[in-house]
């Protein structure tokens, strides 16, 4: 479990980083919590690692002065998890962060890294869909909904760097729910569901599909929570794997949708 040899570059500007990525087979290194294990298993063997950790100005959580937040791509999970501002504005994201890995990993892992890695069972990509985030890169701004193309596959070009996450404000009085089931604390979700309820409901399933998935049919059935939970089961196409069968994951999606919607409805009412 030793990685193949690679070169390492730690540029201090985005321009320099983008230029370095022009080289064939280069890879961005952020917190290393997903990439380094893949290198050690030799699932990937890039010839160059471009460490974006020394580039100033990518680590922040800022008020956008319109009720939303701007988060720098290199902001560590632990910073996100412990931000008061974030907890006040997006309590559902704060709640979901408690399920991301273990403290040691949260100290290193970054929000940008998680989003670009695109694990369908990771919490953050699903939360971006739920919160209708916009993802700003060195080339453009992409809606979260258009960002995920498959498991571990995003819309990013090889030399494109995610720089900022824009979270638009949640309408006042929005209720929320986040429910996750994993075999152990800190594991990737076997299945998780996040929901917000305001004027309308928004539901996202995690770990039950190729990508995080908006459950639009279920959303449309709200406020009939039971019907929504039933519909949710049919909307996802999970895989069988070692930790759970597709049938079981569908079951979980339904159960967790019901609970997430009930919490969200309660929050919205109060």
């Amino acid at each position: 479990m030793k990685p193949a040899a690679f070169e390492y570059l730690a540029p201090v500007s985005l321009a320099e980083a983008v230029a370095a990525l022009g080289r064939d087979d280069a890879k961005i290194l952020a917190g290393g919590q997903s990439l380094v294990p893949m290198l050690n298993f030799r699932l990937r063997a890039p010839s160059l690692l471009v460490d974006i950790g020394r580039i100033p100005g990518l680590d922040y959580i800022e008020d956008d002065r319109a009720g939303g937040l701007r988060i720098g791509a290199m902001t560590r999970h632990h910073t996100v998890e412990t931000s008061d501002l974030l907890r006040q504005r997006f309590p559902v994201l704060h709640a979901a962060m408690q399920y991301v890995a273990h403290l040691a990993i949260r100290n290193k892992g970054t929000i940008g890294g998680s989003l670009c890695h695109g694990d369908p069972a990771a919490e953050l990509p699903g939360l971006m869909l739920l919160l209708d985030a916009r993802l700003k890169t060195t080339q453009r701004t992409i809606a979260a909904e258009d960002f995920y193309e498959g498991a571990l596959d995003t819309a990013l070009a090889e030399d494109e760097i995610l720089t900022e996450i824009l979270l638009p404000p949640l309408p006042a009085g929005t209720g929320w729910g986040f429910e996750e089931f994993a075999r152990r604390s800190g594991d990737f979700a076997l299945t998780a569901v996040g929901a917000t309820v305001g004027e309308e409901a928004r539901i996202v399933a995690i770990g039950a599909h190729e990508t995080p998935l908006r459950l639009r049919a279920a959303e449309a059935l709200f406020p009939d929570i039971e019907a929504a939970a039933e519909a949710a089961r049919e909307e996802v196409s999970p895989n069988d794997d070692l930790h759970g069968s597709a049938d079981y994951r569908r079951h979980l999606v339904s159960v967790l949708t019901r609970h997430a919607l009930m919490s969200a409805r309660e929050g919205a009412a109060s």
Binding site: R183, R184, S185
Partner: peptide
């Protein structure tokens, strides 16, 4: 420990061979 029908071992990392942590 899980082997498939062809004798491949599917639990070759601690993501897949799950031991309890202090929380469990």
């Amino acid at each position: 420990v899980v082997y498939d029908d062809t004798g491949q071992i599917l639990t070759a990392s601690l993501m897949d061979y799950v031991v309890p942590t202090a929380v469990e």
